[in-house]
Amino acid sequence: MKVKAEPENVYKPAEDNVVAREIQGEFILVPIVSGIGDMEDEIFSLNETGKAVWSKLDGKQSLKDIAKALALDYDGPDGVIEDDGVGIAQELLKRKMLVEVKRK
């Protein structure tokens, strides 16, 4: 099933599937369960943008809200930060590192 990240949606880290660690400034995601990496030795690292977005994926704010908050700290043309946020969420969803939080 193809998953698609949407700006209005709220997401949080899939804590049963992955652990985030910061080692010497490098932000890494270590798989806990199988089916995330293809090989036994793989880990994942997030770039600066990924790290900034990940730190705000708290299961409460939508991607749109996160983009607005990040726009206070980062320069970027209108819409680019939001697009980046959606792009990151898309990649993380695909790798089962993120889950959507259904709004009540």
């Binding site: 793989e42 880990i43 994942f44 770039n47 977005v53 980046d84 990649e91």
Partner: peptide, 12 residues
């Protein structure tokens, strides 16, 4: 912000 490859696979 950077737009390219947000999540990178690494062989540790």
């Amino acid at each position: 912000m950077q737009s390219e490859s947000f999540v990178v696979k690494q062989d540790i």
